[in-house]
Amino acid sequence: MSTLGPPPQRIAVEADQVRRLVAEQFPQWAGLEVRPVANGGWDNRTFHLGDTMSARLPSAAEYALAVAKEQRWLPALAPQLPLPIPVPLAEGRPGADFPFAWSVHPWLDGEPASADRIADPVRFAADLAGFLVALQSVDTTGAPRPGKHNWFRGGTLGTYDELVQRALDGQGLAREIWTTALAAPWDGVERWFHGDVAAGNLLLREGKLAAVIDFGTCGAGDPACDLAIAWTLLTADGRRAFRARLAVDDATWARGRGWALWKTLGTCARTRGRADREAVEARRVLDEICAEYLTGR
């Protein structure tokens, strides 16, 4: 049975609202320009704050649960990681008709990763794996465990079984892949994970991985959720390099494939009957997952 509950009730956030919040709570930044970030996020609304900072505001109560976590843990994680991450500069309070805590972050330069922007797919995959190796090696004492704050990332795939069963819609091979993922055992050793290693959260400069952002779903538990990127973005050669650098066993790889399948089936179900870019990309990823499962490549 799913423990996820109903979808979050998102609210709109406007630039004028952010300006009022900043003026009320951080008068030293009141004169800075506030403007929306292009493709500024779904779980959080992100705005430029001057040229060197950003304001990040949760779009729903569920996402606001991550604010205190990021304020507490990103400063501790950052010195132990090989790439920049967005360490918060300040924590905002509710105000100006905005009901949640929010954050001010440094602006990290780069463009979101995409297959056509990555200069060397194998090096990119190895660099990303190296980042995850470092993240997984950080001490988990006191770290947040899977829960509502991160939609149960790092926990059991069974949390999503009800949703996946509805989305499978008679797809025999996908059902086999999902069943295999559910049955793959975890050794129970908790490790730090990011929770949403996706193209939009990986920043490139000159085609190389330069920063990792959006740690709202991070925590400690089963890190297999961070492997989904192997099917959603990496090439076949990159996927092999990624797995080798992480030294992932078969069971963990199967669970990672399951995370990729869950995410992709949800998008396929939502875009069924459409022929736009999102729908085409979801079907491509589903084909990639199935092909890799059959060939092991």
Rank of each mutant, 00 (worst) to 15 (best):
T3F: 05
T3G: 06
P7H: 10
P8Y: 13
I11H: 13
V13H: 09
E14M: 11
Q25S: 09
Q28C: 02
G31R: 12
E33V: 10
R35P: 01
P36F: 11
V37S: 01
V37Q: 03
G40C: 12
G40Q: 12
H48K: 04
D51L: 10
D51H: 11
D51T: 10
D51F: 08
L57T: 09
A64P: 15
L65V: 08
A68M: 11
E70V: 04
Q71H: 06
Q71I: 02
R72I: 06
L74N: 13
Q80N: 08
Q80G: 04
P88C: 02
P88M: 03
A90S: 07
R93I: 01
P94I: 09
A101M: 03
E111K: 04
E111A: 11
S114Q: 06
D116Y: 01
D116G: 04
A119S: 06
D120F: 07
V122P: 06
A126Y: 05
D127W: 11
L128S: 07
L132E: 03
V138I: 15
D139I: 06
T141P: 15
A143I: 10
A143S: 13
A143L: 10
P146R: 00
F152T: 15
E162I: 03
D169G: 01
D169L: 01
G172L: 11
L173V: 14
A174R: 08
T179S: 12
A181D: 02
A181Y: 04
D187C: 02
D187W: 03
D187P: 06
G188S: 14
G188L: 14
E190C: 08
E190K: 05
F193Y: 15
H194V: 04
H194T: 04
L202Q: 00
L204R: 05
R205Q: 08
E206G: 00
G207T: 03
G216C: 09
T217I: 05
G219D: 02
G219M: 01
G221W: 02
D222Y: 07
P223H: 11
C225R: 08
L227D: 06
W231D: 10
W231C: 12
L233S: 03
L233A: 03
A236N: 09
G238T: 11
L246V: 10
D250W: 02
G256L: 11
W259C: 09
A260F: 04
K263E: 02
T264N: 07
L265V: 12
G266I: 10
G273D: 01
R274T: 00
A275Q: 12
A279E: 00
E281F: 03
E281R: 02
A282T: 09
I289T: 09
Y293G: 05
Y293T: 08
Y293D: 13
L294Y: 03
R297G: 15
